[in-house]
Structures are given as structure tokens and as C-alpha cells.
Design a protein around this nucleic acid. Structure first.
Length: 576
DNA sequence: GCCGTTTTCGGCCCGACTGTTTTCAGTCG
């Protein structure tokens, strides 16, 4: 039983209990515990087997600890099974309808015995919803409209897509002279892999002018809510954008507030309370009985400063490790795009790429890179026209020629060698040992059991010519689950053999995730951030990988390709 | 259900907006 499974079980327990009118703080306790467990790098299962006291973990008390032990030992929870008899899982779909929360969904379920979206639609069309207590015609209409959204929504968009929308909206808003300061907040600012909606924060003395201008953004499909200082709209079928207008001296407080994360803010507000302060989106206030005095809020430094805290980079506002770091006075200096010197994973027309070696090198040089590795697929990836020994050796002659014709950047002879289903690599050792850079990847047999696939990858790490493993878990965000691979074992092997693990910068991969980055940091495993570019624009994806690395708390030193190639060679044990 | 340098009870972040309401609950972020 993995931590993720345990966390999901606790989440589901909380979701279902919500329908039974359970004390909301009990639900929060379950959800907090689920969050803690899913963010842990140690396996609960291992701790249970060792007989560790789980209640020592923050946020886990006697009850949740017992549930964890039961889950690890029995693989299931009787309480959850009983609950599922009472409340069908399908009722949770109703919560995806905007404006319909657990309270009113429970009324619909209990009084009309409705448990699916289809039944709900039927009842709403028949006018049965508005007959319920606390419901009326408007709510019924909103539910009907929301069913379509619930069906289309539920999927968060990639950060890169949200970024494109944000940039167009920013350009539109730039024409509004009533705006003083403007910034996007929310999960977009925190650089999450996927973004559920965009939060745009603006300061102005004339909120109505700003809101009017916002409403004119050409991509808006419909308005959801519109008040004096707040407006929500929908772009496309489901994507929501929220605008908030606040006075200029509240910009920092509002930016902090709307950037979150929710968990980070809960901790922050708790700390404020302990000091007799209150923080909301309007500022930091000194609380003295009934009296509240404004103290700070113009910028984020003021807000955090009021609590003697540093301004946390948005990416690490996860209530995972940032407060501990601040307490120790050791906030890490997170990696930036400017720190990157090389890109060690890219494809050319030799396999499934769209540009030549020369074109990729010229484009990389333009981006300021000092070295790149050409790493086309090997022959096992037949649909990508992967290279065999002979074609690879021939390509390396082309690399020599390309190096002769371009100055200011070094092109390395590389290969993305396939880790075969039965184990082993599909380029001969004799050729591999002549390469400057070998990164090994799984492309087939991703559904193998944990033991098999972990051994494949660990064996590849142990291969003397392999320097790195690319996209180690194989997940595709919103599309494909990661392999069952035991990442702890992979990290241990990487640490033992001094090999690197790739953080693939492609916005759909971002593999490693932020927890893996933390794990690597703790275990002393070096990360290499690569674009896996298949064409010239693909080289620009590096920034997505940097965001992910920052979310994992990685510094420049933790990332190998911030070094010069000469330093890198030393790191991967190649002769100078 | 969890937690505690105001500690074993009593609190748990906080405000805007909406719809259904005569003063507020539910939802959302």
C-alpha cells in the first residue's frame, strides 16, 4: 500500500463523510493527514512494518494512525466499505457542479435519492429541485447549467496553457489606465503542473473601470459572478478566470492571500493569530479586543515581515518545508533559468525530431546555452526511426562536422538509449562507451510490476556508460499514470553509482515531480533538467522544468547542468 | 479528529458573493 493510496483512501473517507453531516473539523483532520502522507518521502507501509509510532507525525493522531495500520495490513478499511453502502461514490460527481457543495448535494441525495448527474439533470428539468427547502428556480437553473460544466471540467489545464492565456489577458489589461498594479496569483503563480483557474489581482481607485475593461476581453464566454470588487468569468467551455480589485495599499496582502496555497495560508494565519495579529486580503491587523489596527499590506515583504518571515518564493508555498526552513533561517536560493548552461536531451531529424543538428545547435546558442547533447532515440523505438549502432556512429561524425562549423557552443555525442523490456540496452557497450553522454529511458513495458520495472531501471543506472535516466516515472500529466517504479530504490541506486536523474521539462511530463525533487535533495542525488526538445521551439520548455525544480526546493548546486561541461564530465566520471 | 511555551478543553483562516432569505447559510477561493 503506497502513501498515495493511503492518502486517497482518507480523502475519499472525508468526501463521503461530508454527506453524512460529519463535524467539518474531523473532515479537515482526515484531509490534513492525507496531505501530509502524500507529501512524505518515507513510506508509511515501511514505517508500519518497522512498528514506528505514526502519531509522532504532525497531523496524525491515534485514529488516523490506526487506519493507516489497518490499510497497510488488510489493504482496506471496513469503515469506508460500510460508508460506500450508504453513500454511492457517484454522488461525489455532484460536487463538481459550480455552486453545488456538500450541504445542498446531501439534501438532493437524501430527499430525492439522486446519486448521479444524469438523475440530477432529469430531476432539474422536471422542476423537482426547486421544490426542495432552501432551493428555488434560480438555483435549479444554475444546477442545470452547471451539469454541462461539470461534465466538461474536472480537468485542470497544463501550466503552459494557462501561461498562454495569462499572457494574452495581461496584454489586454495593459490598455486600462485605471490599473495601478497587476499580478496573477493562485496556482499559476506557484507554478503548479496544472492550473484549475487563473486569479488576476489588480489595484485601482476605480474598480468599476477595471472590471468593465476586463469584461471586454475577447476570449470570455460567460460571466459567473460580478460584484463590486470581484468578477469571475469563463473562458472556453470550463476554464475560469477570477479578477479581484483592491486598493493599492492592500496589494501585498491580497497577492499573498490569493497566491496561497490554501495550506500555506492556513499555517500563516495560525501563526498570526498566536501573535495577536490577523491577516486577510486587506492587510495585517493588530487585534486588541474589538480594536483592529492596520499594520502592513503594501507588498508581500511587509506582510511576511510582520511575522518576521522572509518572502517565500511562490513555488514553495506548500506548507511542506518552507516554514521549517524559515525557522532555521535557511531558505534555499532556488535555481533560476539563468543558471542553466546546457541541455542534455533533444532529438533531430535522425529520429523523430523536426530540425537538424546544426539548427538545434544554433537555436540553443541563441538561448545562451554553452553545450547541448544530441540524444536521438535508439532502434527499439522503431516508430520514431530510432538509431542502431551504425547510424549512431555515422551521426556522431555529423556532430563533429557541426562542431567545426559553429563556435560558442559544444555539441555532445549522445543517445537516448532504450531500456529494453527484458532489461539491458539496445546499443552495444562498445559504442556506448564512446559517447559523451548517455541517457537511458523506458519507452515500452511501462505496465510491468513494481519489481520488474524497478530492476530494469536500477540495472540501467548501474551500467558504466549510462550517465542519467530520462523521465524516470514515465507519467504524462492528465494522460498516463507513472510506472509502478520504486523511486526510493532508483534514488538509492543513483546515489550509489553517482548517476543523474532527469527532470524532463516538457509541460506534459515534468517528471520528476516536486516530491521526487525533494527526495533527491535529501538523498544527495543530482538532477539534470532537460527539454527533450523535438524541434527548435521545444528548447524553450526549459523554463517549465525550472518551475518544477523550484517547487521541489532545488538550488543551483543540486542541478548538474548548471555546471560547465568540464565540471559535468567530472561529475559523471568521464575523463577530462 | 488533531493539537497544546495561554495545554487535556475548546478552538480549528477569513472575506466576497449569491440566493433565499427577513438576518443568514452555503459556496468558493
Amino acid at each position: 500500500m503506497t502513501n498515495q493510496r493511503i492518502a486517497q483512501t482518507l480523502e475519499q473517507l472525508a468526501d463521503l463523510l461530508e454527506f453524512t453531516g460529519t463535524n467539518p473539523f474531523r473532515l479537515r483532520a482526515y484531509r490534513n493527514a492525507a496531505r501530509k502522507i502524500s507529501a512524505m518521502t518515507d513510506a508509511i507501509a515501511t514505517m508500519v512494518e518497522r512498528g514506528d509510532d505514526l502519531t509522532k507525525l504532525d497531523g496524525i493522531g491515534k485514529s488516523v494512525a490506526e487506519k493507516c495500520v489497518t490499510l497497510v495490513e488488510d489493504g482496506k478499511l471496513q469503515q469506508l466499505d460500510d460508508l460506500l453502502e450508504e453513500v454511492p461514490k457517484s454522488v461525489l460527481d455532484m460536487l463538481r457542479i459550480p455552486g453545488l457543495g456538500p450541504k445542498r448535494a446531501a439534501i438532493i441525495f437524501n430527499q430525492l435519492n439522486i446519486s448521479t448527474l444524469d438523475q440530477l439533470k432529469e430531476a432539474a428539468e422536471a422542476g423537482k429541485i426547486q421544490e426542495l427547502d432552501g432551493f428555488a428556480a434560480k438555483t435549479e437553473k444554475a444546477i442545470l447549467a452547471g451539469i454541462a460544466i461539470a461534465a466538461a471540467a474536472g480537468q485542470r489545464i497544463y501550466w503552459s496553457e494557462a501561461d498562454a492565456i495569462a499572457q494574452r489577458l495581461r496584454a489586454h489589461m495593459a490598455d486600462c489606465s485605471a490599473i495601478q498594479q497587476m499580478e496573477f496569483a493562485g496556482s499559476y503563480r506557484r507554478g503548479k503542473e496544472t492550473v484549475g483557474d487563473l486569479d488576476l489581482l489588480v489595484t485601482s481607485d476605480e474598480p468599476s473601470r477595471v472590471m468593465e475593461h476586463f469584461a471586454e476581453f475577447s476570449e470570455i464566454e460567460s460571466e459567473i459572478v460580478s460584484g463590486d470588487t470581484k468578477m469571475s468569468v469563463r473562458i472556453g467551455d470550463a476554464f475560469q478566470v477570477d479578477l479581484r480589485v483592491v486598493p493599492d495599499d492592500a496589494f501585498g496582502a491580497a497577492l499573498q492571500y490569493f497566491t496561497g496555497s490554501k495550506e500555506h495560508n492556513v499555517v500563516l494565519r495560525g501563526m498570526a493569530k498566536n501573535r495577536g495579529l490577523k491577516i486577510n486580503e486587506w492587510g495585517v491587523f493588530k487585534v486588541d479586543g474589538e480594536q483592529e489596527t492596520w499594520m502592513a499590506g503594501r507588498d508581500e515583504a511587509e506582510v511576511y515581515g510582520a511575522l518576521d518571515l522572509p518572502v517565500f518564493p511562490p513555488e514553495i508555498r506548500q506548507a511542506r518545508f518552507e516554514f521549517q526552513w524559515a525557522e532555521q533561517g535557511a531558505l534555499p536560493d532556488l535555481i533560476t533559468l539563468d543558471d542553466i548552461r546546457g541541455d542534455l536531451h533533444m532529438h533531430t531529424t535522425a529520429s523523430d525530431g523536426q530540425n537538424s543538428i546544426d539548427e538545434m545547435a544554433a537555436a540553443a546558442k541563441k538561448l545562451g546555452l554553452k553545450y547541448i547533447a544530441i540524444t536521438d532515440h535508439s532502434k527499439r523505438v522503431s516508430m520514431a526511426n530510432g538509431l542502431d549502432d551504425d547510424r549512431l556512429l555515422a551521426q556522431w561524425d555529423d556532430v563533429d562536422k557541426a562542431n567545426d562549423s559553429i563556435k560558442g557552443i559544444t555539441i555532445l555525442k549522445g543517445i537516448e538509449v532504450d531500456i529494453l523490456e527484458k532489461g539491458g540496452l539496445d546499443i552495444s557497450d562498445a559504442v556506448l562507451e564512446q559517447a559523451d553522454w548517455v541517457t537511458a529511458s523506458v519507452h515500452y513495458g511501462g505496465k510491468q510490476d513494481r519489481e520488474t520495472i524497478t530492476k530494469r531501471i536500477v540495472d540501467a543506472i548501474a551500467h558504466p556508460s549510462v550517465s542519467a535516466i530520462s523521465h524516470p516515472t514515465g507519467r504524462l500529466i492528465n494522460q498516463r499514470e507513472p510506472y509502478e517504479v520504486d523511486m526510493q530504490a532508483v534514488m538509492m541506486a543513483a546515489a550509489k553509482y553517482g548517476k543523474l536523474l532527469e527532470l524532463n521539462a516538457h509541460p506534459v511530463r515534468l517528471d520528476l515531480n516536486e516530491l521526487h525533487c525533494s527526495m533527491a535533495r535529501e538523498m544527495g542525488v543530482s538532477i539534470v533538467i532537460n527539454t527533450d526538445a523535438h524541434n527548435i521551439p521545444g528548447l524553450q520548455m526549459m523554463r517549465f522544468g525550472i518551475k518544477q525544480a523550484r517547487r521541489g526546493g532545488l538550488t543551483k548546486d543540486a542541478v548538474a547542468n548548471t555546471r560547465t561541461w568540464a565540471q559535468m564530465k567530472k561529475l559523471i566520471g568521464k575523463p577530462a
